[in-house]
């Protein structure tokens, strides 16, 4: 029959390609493995380089580097205290503002808004994450900071200027503006994770509460938030990590003055900003090494925060049983 003819024709080229195929299979797998290994080595190399090149500064200044406020390139004395302070405080402001807003948005989008509304609105909130940070900075300088000065700092300063936290002239530029811009920038991050976590709450949980006659808010309060708690915490830590490392928007509105002031209205500085501003001008070794140590600290903190965030998010995504039992 015709069968046999086709079979002959079919089998010969088959066998030919076969001979090439066995090594190809191995080569392809090796290629993908090499890429994966390369990614691990890349992170290893980053860590190694940061430790290596900051060793000079670490040895010379030791622990004092973190606490000291003196940053004097001329004298060769470096302490990053003021930068660390600025980074932490501006990020804390951001978290304090962004957390309730983000959780509110996530709840609104998942629990209240009808689908025809929650999809486009959710997209708009995500769009906030797509705007490059230099544009946040530009908008911050020319739109946001003047607004804050006029409508937030002036009235608060007039009323509460006697409290150190709100003392000093309303400059606009400063810690408060930096924190608020950071808050806007991390809202999409915390919102996205909270939305995922909240929509993973089992329907049974919701319906159980509803059947008891709970109002919508009570369903959220008693059935959803306890379940989603640690996942949302993961989102918050992830947002914090992002805020700590943010460079451009902060450096454009924080004022770049390495001082520790009680007032939120005062200019400040941040770790990422000092690297951005001074790195390319750092000529001598110890100066460069000190800036790299700032980078190393920033890296270590965000590295740990990401690990923590992953753990919390994973614990919710993985263990719905634990959530049900609370």
């Amino acid at each position: 029959m015709l069968d046999k003819d086709i079979k002959k024709k079919a089998i010969n080229p088959k066998d030919k390609s076969n001979a090439q195929n066995i090594p190809l299979d191995k080569i392809f797998k090796a290629l993908t493995f090499t890429a994966s290994l390369g990614v691990i080595l890349l992170l290893g190399f980053i860590i190694f380089k940061l430790f290596m090149e900051s060793a000079l500064s670490v040895e010379k200044f030791g622990f004092k580097f973190i606490t000291s406020m003196e940053w004097d390139p001329v004298k060769g004395e470096f302490g990053a205290g003021a930068y660390i302070f600025g980074t932490i405080v501006s990020s804390l402001i951001a978290i304090l503002i962004a957390t309730p807003v983000s959780v509110g948005i996530a709840l609104y989008l998942t629990e209240i808004a009808p689908p025809w509304l929650s999809t486009p609105v959710g997209f708009l909130v995500e769009l906030l994450a797509a705007i490059p940070s230099v544009i946040y900075g530009l908008w911050g300088i020319f739109v946001f900071v003047p607004f804050i000065r006029q409508y937030i700092q002036k009235p608060i300063g007039d009323l509460f200027g006697w409290i150190p936290l709100f003392s000093g002239p309303p400059l606009g530029i400063g810690m408060l503006s930096a924190g608020l811009i950071l808050a806007i920038m991390i809202i999409p991050i915390i919102t996205a994770i909270s939305r995922d976590i909240i929509s993973s709450v089992p329907t049974l949980q919701r319906e159980g509460a509803m059947a008891l006659g709970a109002t919508r808010w009570e369903v959220i309060k008693y059935a959803i938030l306890p379940f989603a708690k640690s996942g949302i915490l993961g989102g918050i830590i992830l947002g914090m990590g992002r805020a700590l490392g943010e460079t451009m928007a902060v450096t454009m509105v924080i004022g770049n003055r390495p001082e520790i002031k009680a007032s939120l209205f005062a200019p400040a500085h941040s770790m990422a900003a000092v690297i951005a501003n001074e790195f390319t001008e750092a000529t001598d070794d110890i100066y460069l090494s000190a800036l790299i140590e700032v980078g190393l600290l920033l890296f270590l903190v965000t590295f740990i925060m990401n690990g923590l965030a992953r753990f919390f998010i994973w614990s919710v995504a993985r263990g719905p049983k634990g959530g049900i039992r609370q």
Partner: peptide, 10 residues
Amino acid sequence: GIPSIVVGIF
């Protein structure tokens, strides 16, 4: 999650 400025340093 690495701050982009740190990638710049590297």
